Amino acid sequence: MIQSMTGYGKSVLQLPTKKVTIEIKSLNSKNLDLNVRIPSYYKEKELAVRKKLASALLRGKVDFSIFVEMTADETSTTVNPGVVKEYMQQLRKMIEADTSTDIELLKMAVKMPDALKTEREELDETEWSTIAKGIELAIKDIVQYRIDEAASLEIDFKQRIVNIKAFLEEVNDLDGDRIDNVKTRLQKAIDELKVETDENRFEQELIYYLEKLDINEEKVRLANHLDYFLETLASPESNGKKLGFIVQEMGREINTTGSKANFAPMQKAVIQMKNELEQIKEQILNVL
């Protein structure tokens, strides 16, 4: 079962003194590019969070955030009275007393450095245990999102593989006409030269030329790659890199077939195969 690398997961927790929102967003990337933003008092848990995310999401550009909104009446930030008074005294010395009131001085003073002090909140293990469960829920949410997102991709991949197989069958049906066409063109070219030819030598040259244009191996390999793609697509684990490698091999066989075709109707079918494969290539970049 394939997964998309595009996803979103979220969980919201209401703790006794705060509301905690956990968000995970992901986009496609060749490797795991993990960005974690959490409050400073949870920093000691960051490594464990990274390991959990890496284990569950594997690949993609992932943004993980924990947002905390205090809901209690008390606050950990308080005014530093001594510092504020000192700022106000210094400001009075700089300006005329009758041009500014204490209220205006106070407004300026509280914006100065160290006018407010925040007591560092210590990590509460019981609280973190609840948050860790919220992280698990957010991860499950984004994984399910990835699975749902990939469902439409899988349908599209299968349809395009069916289309390529149909064009490959068309190529196979045209192969006999192509060989006859090549023989006729060669014989016509020799006839136009109006020279005598050794029939045995002509047959040898014709066989050599046709061997260079033979596409049986390409057709067999392409058919095998198409089946292997579907087999990998149906495997229990998502493997976008492997699917990408198979698509590359499919492209090689289609390109070689096109270069050897030397027959307009067959080249049209090859172009159709290339078009279908190009659509798969674009979408496969988003598969985990």
Rank of each mutant, 00 (worst) to 15 (best):
L105V: 08
Y209S: 05
L153Q: 12
V171M: 03
K194T: 04
Q3D: 07
V84L: 01
N163E: 14
E205A: 12
Q272I: 02
K274T: 07
I135S: 08
S259D: 05
T197Y: 14
I155W: 10
N181L: 06
T17A: 07
A264F: 12
K242F: 07
E211N: 12
A166D: 06
R146Y: 11
L174C: 07
E23C: 13
L27T: 15
K188T: 14
Q248M: 00
K183T: 11
L193S: 06
L58M: 11
D124T: 11
V182W: 06
K268N: 12
M5P: 05
E199T: 13
F202N: 14
G9S: 07
M88F: 11
I2V: 09
M94G: 09
M250Q: 01
T118A: 01
K133D: 15
A150Y: 04
E44S: 10
E149A: 11
L53V: 14
M1Q: 03
F229E: 09
L213P: 01
I135M: 02
V20N: 09
E121S: 03
T71R: 10
K194Y: 05
F263V: 10
S152F: 13
A261R: 06
L168R: 07
V68L: 03
K268D: 10
A261T: 06
Y228V: 06
L277T: 13
T71F: 06
E217L: 02
Q267E: 05
L206H: 07
T78C: 05
D63H: 15
I22G: 12
I66Y: 08
D227P: 08
M70S: 14
I284N: 01
P265L: 08
L174A: 04
K61Q: 14
L193I: 14
A269F: 12
Y209W: 06
D198A: 06
V287D: 10
E253L: 04
R221E: 10
P113Q: 03
P16R: 00
E203K: 11
Y42L: 13
M112R: 06
V270C: 00
I38F: 06
K281W: 03
V182C: 00
Y87M: 00
I164P: 01
M1V: 11
T75K: 02
Q90V: 07
E231M: 02
L53H: 13
K140V: 05
Y87D: 09
T256Q: 07
T77N: 00
H225S: 04
A189P: 01
Y209R: 01
E249D: 13
V143F: 11
L285R: 12
I254D: 03
K194C: 08
N80A: 08
I164Y: 04
R221D: 08
P265Q: 11
L277A: 09
F67L: 13
I139N: 02
S238Y: 00
P81W: 02
K165F: 10
K219V: 12
A264W: 10
Q272V: 10
K242H: 15
Y8C: 12
Y41W: 12
L58K: 15
D73C: 01
D114Q: 15
L47R: 00
S152V: 14
A261Q: 02
F64K: 05
L285F: 15
A234C: 03
Y208A: 05
T101V: 03
K61R: 14
E282P: 13
K45R: 09
A151H: 14
E253K: 00
D227E: 13
R252I: 08
K18W: 05
S238K: 07
D156N: 10
I142P: 10
I215Q: 05
Q267H: 00
R120W: 03
K61P: 13
